[in-house]
């Protein structure tokens, strides 16, 4: 083989693998363009009503996705409020407190939550979570604790509700938050912990004053990654949220989410206008997910690189 031919085959190989790498950015561009083109007719016809309208009435060609948007945002926010503290607890437990073997085991078990398919969460939600909420939790919150005075906890206890979807989402995003939090805590230099301990800090003071502040940007990034997961989560939410296309007035009320709207209506879409409106919903979901993930990755990456070169 002459060196010229070696050079040629090397170049060919390089071009081949570079083409494979380019597939990823290409996919993001193509997905965005295709969804936007498909949504365009609806955007032209309905404009901002797609985002702000509260009526989703297919026969009358009214496509206001606000109830679904609100449902997605509130259930995701609930999930974050529940999962973020627990996720950080898991990370602190595994990295700072637990004996090594217990820590590793707990870490692996929490990771396992991420391996359970979404539809299995939904199945469990239908048969365990919903009856439990209907018969125990909702009456307890509303009547026994007297929270029914507030609109948030009032109304009949059906089971399928914003509350149910928030709870399922919290369980589902917990492993993602915990995993990133562990990674970020592990990147905090050891010297920082030793310095705090040498100053006489208790273990909790070390965590609070020396570890968590250093890892803050990454922790926020991890929580945002969880948010990204929660926003786009489809099956489990569709199965427990109640699929009622109206603005929810209580956590106990059945509601809707953007992903559930797509899952339920896309196959039965009647006519191009309906499909295009659903594409617009998919576009909103895609846009929000891209934004949240892009930000989250920057935050997580910043912690990783900032401390990578510090001798530990």
């Amino acid at each position: 083989m002459t060196s010229a031919r070696i050079g040629a085959s090397d170049r060919l190989f390089l071009i081949g693998t570079a083409a494979a790498v380019s597939v990823v950015p290409l996919l993001i561009v193509v997905i965005t363009v295709i969804v936007v083109i498909a949504a365009w007719p609806a955007v032209q016809t309905h404009g901002l009503t797609l985002l702000t309208g509260v009526e989703w009435d297919v026969p009358r060609q009214q496509f206001g996705a606000l109830p679904a948007i609100v449902g997605t945002l509130t259930s995701s926010a609930m999930a974050l409020a529940l999962a973020a503290p627990v996720g950080v607890c898991v990370a602190v437990f595994v990295n700072e407190l637990a004996p090594r073997t217990i820590g590793t085991a707990v870490g692996a078990l929490v990771d396992l939550l991420a391996a359970i398919p979404s539809v299995v969460y939904g199945l469990w939600g239908i048969f365990v979570l919903l009856p439990w909420l209907r018969e125990t939790v909702m009456p307890l919150l509303r009547d026994t604790l007297g929270l029914g005075r507030f609109a948030l906890f009032s109304g009949p206890a059906y089971g399928p509700s914003l509350l149910a979807s928030g709870l399922v989402l919290a369980i589902m995003i917990l492993p993602y938050i915990a995993a990133v939090a562990r990674e970020v805590l592990a990147a905090v230099p050891r010297a920082q912990r030793e310095a705090a301990l040498a100053l006489g800090a208790t273990r909790w003071e070390m965590v609070r004053d020396a570890v968590l502040p250093t890892a803050r940007a990454g922790l926020i990034g991890g929580v945002m990654l969880g948010l990204g997961r929660a926003l786009g989560e489809t099956m489990a939410v569709t199965m427990v949220i109640g699929n009622r296309n109206a603005l929810p007035d209580s956590l106990f009320a059945p509601a809707y989410s953007m992903a559930a709207l797509l899952a339920n209506e896309f196959n039965e879409a009647t006519g191009d206008a309906h499909v295009s409106a659903l594409m617009a919903v998919a576009g909103v979901l895609l846009f929000v997910a891209l934004l949240v993930n892009a930000l989250a990755r920057v935050l997580v990456g910043s912690v990783r690189t900032r401390h990578a070169r510090v001798p530990g």
Partner: peptide, 28 residues
């Protein structure tokens, strides 16, 4: 530059809701 962009974007693509991928595959 290609690698840095692609590495970042593959993490982002990982976070794209799978239902949107389904809608995309339906359309094409």
């Amino acid at each position: 530059r290609l690698s840095r962009i692609s590495r970042y974007l593959s993490d982002v693509l990982n976070g794209v809701p799978s239902i949107v991928i389904g809608v995309f595959a339906w359309e094409v």
